[in-house]
């Protein structure tokens, strides 16, 4: 499927925010119970036009995320299907108790979309750079947690969350993602993008592209790597993960997030309990965010193909 992918990594034509607005508009046209909620970040997420296009299915609450979650609960209680967006830290950190009690504990439905994942917050800096949102949301019983890597995947996961109900958290970047999948692709299981025998690299979000680049570079060193796009952090595709760990005997995770709480933790927990192998987690460690350009920030926090290569190499050595 993706054998030639790594040579041809290009950006999707649609920005992720445009994917969000387009998918919401389609869902809203098909179901008048769908409603989009914003807390004064419509312009940032390309949902501003929905105000005119679907006026009865769009609600901008102003800058009040806690109240937005409560209103979301009220909308769900009356049978509506709310899609809620803000920057990741405002969705999760700021309104966590509201999500926990009024939505999850009350067993109501919401699709929560946190944008500007991790370092892609760039010049909004440390206050806006969230490396802990997936960890927080993973602690919420029965909540589903996704980090999407590609436009086709994002549209699919939005529809999947709409279909399945419950509390869903979808983490995304706002701008163009790398093009990985063709229209019609489904995302019910983790995506094995390359198959190798020496190491498994499990990544999500913008680190999937880095993992694919790393796999190419590792090939030149005689190391063959499996790359898995683990877009669903919870529930985690345990079957695919363990099968791959058995095949390669070493696992490296890579995420634009704190290594504690997110993908790295989820993978470590499953392997630790089921099939321990040498493991390394690439991600942010005991650090806050900061301002900077994307390339600088990726380099600073080690979220790069070259860092993956370095640690993959060490892991393979550890196997011996």
């Amino acid at each position: 499927m993706v054998s030639s992918m790594t040579q041809t990594l290009q950006l999707d034509t649609l920005e992720m925010r445009q994917v969000y607005a387009k998918t919401l508009k389609e869902l809203a046209a098909a179901d008048d119970r769908v409603i989009a909620l914003e807390a004064d970040l419509s312009s940032s997420m390309s949902t501003g036009r929905l105000k005119d296009e679907i006026p009865n299915q769009y609600l901008n609450l102003g800058i009040m995320e806690a109240n937005m979650m409560g209103v979301t609960a009220g909308l769900s209680l009356t049978g509506r299907k709310p899609f809620v967006h803000s920057f990741g830290q405002f969705v999760t950190r700021r309104a966590f108790d509201q999500i926990f009690v009024s939505l999850a504990y009350a067993k109501l439905n919401a699709v929560l979309v946190g944008s500007d994942a991790g370092v892609t917050a760039e010049h909004n800096g440390g206050t806006h750079m969230t490396f802990e949102d997936m960890g927080l949301m993973r602690e919420v019983p029965n909540a589903k947690v996704y980090e999407v890597s590609d436009a086709v995947q994002f549209a699919y996961i939005l529809r999947k969350a709409y279909r399945e109900g419950g509390v869903n958290y979808i983490r995304t970047i706002r701008k163009n993602a790398v093009h990985l999948y063709e229209e019609g692709e489904t995302f019910e299981k983790a995506k094995v993008l390359t198959e190798g025998k020496d190491i498994t690299i499990v990544a999500c979000g913008i680190l999937v592209a880095e993992a694919l680049k790393a796999a190419e570079q590792l090939k030149e060193k005689g190391i063959s790597a499996t790359v898995i796009d683990m877009f669903s952090i919870k529930p985690l595709d345990v079957e695919t993960l363990i099968a791959s760990a058995k095949q390669t005997g070493a696992v490296l995770t890579a995420e634009n997030h704190n290594v504690n709480g997110g993908l790295g933790s989820a993978v470590a927990e499953v392997l630790g309990e089921n099939y321990p192998v040498p493991l390394y987690r690439i991600g942010v460690r005991e650090q806050f965010g900061q301002v900077g350009k994307l390339d600088y920030l990726k380099e600073f926090y080690g979220l790069t193909a070259s860092n993956i290569v370095e640690h993959a190499h060490k892991l393979v050595q550890r196997k011996k």
Binding site: N67, M69, V71, A73, G74, L75, D97, Q98, S102
Partner: peptide, 25 residues
């Protein structure tokens, strides 16, 4: 019981959401 409450401040937001939703309908 219509809504789960007890974490103070949250029920009034939910009530506002219910009232908004019913008004829309």
């Amino acid at each position: 019981v219509e809504m789960t409450t007890g974490s103070l401040g949250q029920g009034i937001s939910v009530a506002a959401g219910i009232a908004y939703s019913n008004k829309l309908d």
